[in-house]
């Protein structure tokens, strides 16, 4: 089954497409907002550049998905700048603030997130919604080095004096990472319509099969996934931790201060 473009969807199909797009776009956007905090604090010039570059990729991918929401009638303001922060559906993993100077957190988060991101994209290659399927190959090509970057740093940070920091990041972030696979209200429809060709439980299993052995190979202890209580706020049902509301206020500050009628465009694109 293949759906057409944005204009021939039934209301139920539309709800499912929107939920899928907002989850993806919000994840990428908020992850990038947090990464850029490292732009001037990363431990080497190369990693300053790497983290800013990864953030730039994620902003680019967020834009791909917000563009498709705009094709469905939303404006950029409605998607980002004037959107009620209590309606965003990113996983609460990506909104967590970094403990001061905790590079291990940034690296581990990137590893957990980008591994999940890769699996999600692979499950969209054959999406029944062509505008999504058409964009996936480009994203997959740009994501590969994110995982390589995170993995090589994890190997470097473990086994020595920083090992405990990484372990603390695993303990803190792992429950939040599981919210990546928490369902939203239209999850059944997303799978039934073939918008995503795998359900979240299967994606979670595949993710665990990758991340658990890798982290254990670095002598890290990973919590037993089925015994981990999901955080009260998963993000997927628009519930969020306090840190998100602070972050939202920060990144919309300039927009609000300038009182722009619409986001600034270079040379006034028409």
């Amino acid at each position: 089954m293949s759906l057409d473009g944005p204009h021939s969807l039934t209301p139920d199909e539309r709800d499912a497409v929107e939920e899928l797009l907002f989850r993806m776009a919000d994840d990428e956007y908020v992850a990038a907002e947090r990464y850029i905090e490292w732009q001037i604090f990363a431990p080497t010039l190369e990693s300053d550049l790497a983290l800013s570059n990864i953030a730039q990729d994620e902003f680019g991918h967020a834009r791909l998905w917000y563009d498709l929401l705009q094709d469905m009638g939303y404006s950029e303001q409605e998607c980002i700048w004037e959107r009620d922060p209590a309606t965003w559906t990113h996983s609460t993993l990506v909104e967590q603030p970094f403990e001061e100077g905790d590079w291990a957190d940034a690296i581990l988060r990137s590893y957990l997130y980008d591994t999940a991101e890769n699996l999600r994209m692979e499950a969209l290659v054959d999406s029944s919604y062509p505008p999504i399927a058409d964009r996936v190959a480009k994203v997959l090509a740009e994501e590969r080095y994110h995982r390589e970057h995170a993995q090589s740093w994890l190997e470097r940070l473990t086994g020595g004096e920083h090992h405990e920091k990484v372990q603390a990041a695993v303990d803190r972030l792992f429950p939040y990472a599981l919210t990546l696979f928490a369902a939203g209200p239209n999850e059944d429809a997303i799978v039934e319509l073939g918008l995503r060709t795998e359900n979240l439980d299967d994606l979670r299993e595949e993710w665990l099969e990758i991340v658990v052995p890798f982290l254990e190979s670095l002598d890290l202890t990973v919590p037993e996934p089925d015994e981990v209580a999901l955080p009260e706020e998963t993000g997927r049902d628009a519930s969020h931790t306090d840190a998100w509301f602070d972050l939202y206020e920060d990144f919309t500050h300039t927009y609000n201060e300038l009182e722009l009628e619409e986001p600034i465009r270079l040379r006034g694109e028409g």
Binding site: D57, K138, E269, G270
Partner: peptide
Amino acid sequence: TYTGCPARDMILNDVR
């Protein structure tokens, strides 16, 4: 070439 291209709107406008 790149999804995160910061000159997207500029290029699109030039082409238009």
